[in-house]
Every structure is written in C-alpha cells, then in structure tokens.
Amino acid sequence: MNFRRCILSLVLLVMLSGCVTTFKTVAPSVVTVGDLQVNAASVWNRAPPTILPYMRKDAEVWTHDGLLLDRVLIIPAVPQGQAMFVDRQGQAALPPFRSSMLPNEIQEMTEVSLAKYFGEGESTVDGRNLRPHRFGNSNGVLFDIEAAVADGPAYKGLVGAFITDSKLYLLMYVAADPHYFEKHRAEAEELIKGARLAVATAATAG
C-alpha cells in the first residue's frame, strides 16, 4: 500500500464521480479528538474520513495547505495489540502497539508504520533526537523524523507520544521539506507539545 498514491487515487475518484468531499474547518480553540485534547492556535482543515482509509476511525488529520504538503495526525487511544494505522487490505503487516514498549520501541514502531504507508520498498523513514516530554499529567516522548519518498518530496516532522492506561496516544506533524515544514513548524510543535488527556484525573503511565 502506498500512502501518497492512495490519497491521490481517492481524490481523483471523488472528482470523477462528481461527489463533493469537504474539508471541515477547525477553528482556533481547544479541540478534543477522542479523549485527547489539543489547542488549535489558528484555522486548520480537517480531512474527511472518506479519503483517509489508513486512519483509525477515532483519529483525525488536519492540514493547512493540502495533505501532500503538510498534515498533523492525531491518533488517540490505540489499544494493546493494535497498530497505529489501519491495514484494510491485510498486506502491510503493521507492527502492533504493546503497552510495555520503551521509548525507542515507540520510535521504531512509528518509523516502520510510516515507511509502509509512504510505500514500503520505495521510502525510508528515520527517527532521531528522542527526548522526554510531559503531556499534561502523562510522561511521554518527542522525536524528529525524516522521510525520503521515491515518487514525492522529502518530508520532515515531529512526533509526540505517551502511554496511559495501556493505550498509546500519538501526534505527528509531517510536511514537505524545506518550505512547508518550516512554514508550519512552530505552530505544529506547540500543538503537539501541548496535547493532553481531556480527563485530567486519568491515571498516568509510561
């Protein structure tokens, strides 16, 4: 499965069928996605689920300039034994999340998962600069990513992740480098670093 080709194919299908696929506006505010809370400092565009078959049903993808140029993935509450993305064709062999994962294992899982959706065998994804970060009351990690895609631009990004109640919460900013990555970098970093559980009394782990 190829992440980029999948999006292009679905967009083309919608255009040819005459259907209207609308990106909904996310106004500047505190936004809750599942039980994950983030602060949108400016207007974002929420992608419709119909063009995001690889995303979990409770996850969201936001963009400023278009999905192939920049996007923030917000993935709440991945349970034990499930993957951060959805493999509807049963061909991707995505690595499952385990609640006992160490920070470097979360980074490795993210690298492998992204590589498969950018196009396994056609792309490379490298994580680096793994460091601790506190998301509200939850201890987690941040790390940077770089992706080289055979039929697309180079990408850079930032990932934030934490484990609470044996569930993985993951936020990811990915954008074409250098222009679009730098254009939205500061805002995306603030959004990711400020994420927290909507229920402040939730137990903390990780």
Rank of each mutant, 00 (worst) to 15 (best):
L197R: 15
L94G: 08
I192H: 13
W44M: 14
A47V: 11
G121P: 04
A202E: 10
N139K: 10
A59V: 01
E108K: 07
G206R: 07
R71K: 10
A147D: 08
H179F: 13
W44S: 12
M84L: 11
A161K: 05
P132R: 13
N129I: 02
A195Q: 13
V43N: 10
C6V: 06
P153V: 09
L68W: 00
K156A: 13
V78G: 04
I75W: 02
G119P: 02
H64Q: 07
Y54A: 10
E146D: 14
L10V: 11
L36N: 08
V33Q: 09
L130A: 04
N129M: 07
P132E: 09
Q80V: 04
N39P: 00
T201N: 10
V26D: 05
G121V: 02
N137V: 05
C6A: 13
E146K: 15
V20C: 07
A115F: 01
Q89P: 00
H179P: 01
N139H: 08
N137K: 12
T164C: 12
Q80T: 08
F162Q: 11
S17V: 06
V174N: 09
D65Q: 06
A47E: 08
G152P: 06
T50H: 05
L130T: 04
G121Y: 02
R131K: 09
L130Y: 05
V20K: 15
F97P: 00
G136L: 03
G127R: 02
G121M: 04
D35V: 08
K116V: 01
T110W: 01
V78L: 03
F97N: 01
G152M: 07
D70H: 01
N104S: 04
M55H: 09
R131L: 06
G127D: 02
I192E: 11
R185A: 14
M55V: 10
E190K: 15
V20L: 14
G127E: 02
Q82W: 00
R4S: 06
P103K: 03
A175K: 11
D126G: 00
L191P: 12
V31D: 09
N45Y: 13
T164W: 00
R88V: 05
R98V: 00
V33P: 13
G81T: 00
D177Q: 14
G34T: 05
V26C: 06
N45M: 12
N39H: 13
G160P: 08
Q107T: 03
F143V: 05
G18A: 06
G119Q: 04
I7W: 13
T25L: 13
D165M: 11
A150G: 04
L170S: 10
L8R: 12
L197A: 06
Q82D: 07
A195I: 06
I106C: 01
Y117H: 07
A83T: 05
